[in-house]
Amino acid sequence: MEMKKRITEELGGRKPTEVVELLLDSCVTADGELDGLSEDFSALEVLSLCNTGLKSLSKLPKLPKLKRLELSDNALSSGLDVLSDKCPALIYLNLSGNNIKDLSAIKGLHKLASLQSLDLEEDEEDEESWREKVFELLPQICFLNGFDQDHNQAPDDDDDDEAGPHDDDDDDDDEDDEDQGSEDEEEVGLSYLMKEGIQDEEDDGDYVEEDDEEEEGDEDALRGEKRKRDAEEEDDDDE
């Protein structure tokens, strides 16, 4: 599919100023030149042009917000200097699978102050020396072909999302809080029941004590009546 037609399909009725990501992989360029891409795509942050037969970037429009540019598997060999002017905010650039044989072709990329990661076809015969030269030419980059100068692998793009596994930990904490709350409620409930039981026993004791007092009162009354009868009988005997 021609690039211009592909761009129209990718828009899907949107305005170019509303597009943040544009994927044009494997579409056909016009004589190795960009076709249909204009400065109207001012909000574009990701542009992928892999395997399009691209030979030149001369018609690349100015894309001030572009952060990621995929140019792998094309026929680029030079003319990369325009990127510093056209895409000043570029952070990641993929040039692997092109015809860049001389490192002088990438020298102009040192003006891309925000560039952190670069993918480039390696010199397999002298890989270590080649890497050192690239880092010397582009001191601003942190990662070359996915590794830093100490051969430490670059973090995945998803690492930031995982930083928060966090959700699972939060869920566990919530479950622990719920379990702790249930235990506390259970303890409170048991304490309440025990307290009620003690109160009931005390109430029962008071009730028993009242019964005992009533019985003692009855006994005293009986003894009083008996003493009264005995006294009356003694009076009768005296008479």
Rank of each mutant, 00 (worst) to 15 (best):
H166D: 15
V20C: 08
I7M: 01
E209F: 05
D150Y: 09
I100C: 03
N145C: 04
V20I: 13
L54R: 01
E178S: 10
S48W: 14
R131V: 01
L11H: 09
D177Y: 09
E45H: 14
D172W: 07
K65R: 08
E21I: 02
Q140T: 06
G79N: 05
S129G: 12
K111I: 02
D170F: 08
E175Q: 13
K4M: 01
L118K: 01
N99D: 13
R6M: 05
E216R: 06
E213K: 07
F143S: 00
L90G: 02
L190W: 09
V20T: 13
D167G: 11
L120K: 04
K101F: 13
D174E: 08
K67I: 02
S77G: 11
S117D: 08
K107C: 04
L22Y: 03
L66M: 06
S117E: 12
S77H: 06
G12Q: 12
Y192G: 14
D81N: 14
G12Y: 05
L222Q: 13
G181F: 06
E213L: 08
H151F: 13
M1D: 04
M1Q: 05
C50D: 10
P155D: 04
S182K: 15
E45V: 11
K111N: 06
D230R: 15
A75Y: 06
S56D: 05
G97E: 03
H166C: 12
P88E: 03
D157V: 14
R229L: 13
I141V: 03
L80V: 01
I91D: 02
K228A: 09
D230K: 11
D25I: 10
K15Y: 02
L190F: 11
G97K: 05
E121V: 11
I141N: 00
R223E: 13
L24Y: 01
Q199F: 14
K86T: 01
E187F: 12
E136V: 07
E187G: 09
K107I: 07
E219V: 15
D31T: 13
V82F: 08
E70P: 03
E201A: 11
A163D: 15
E2W: 10
A105D: 02
D160F: 12
G32H: 05
K5M: 05
D159G: 11
L112Y: 03
E124S: 11
A231R: 10
D179A: 10
S58M: 05
L22A: 04
E70S: 11
A221H: 07
G108R: 06
S78L: 03
S72Y: 03
A89R: 03
E185P: 01
Q116T: 09
K111T: 04
R227L: 12
G36E: 06
L112C: 12
E128D: 13
E125C: 06
C142H: 02
E2V: 07
G36T: 04
R14M: 14
F41D: 02
D123A: 11
V28A: 02
G197H: 03
K228T: 07
E232T: 15
C87D: 01
P139A: 07
E45T: 15
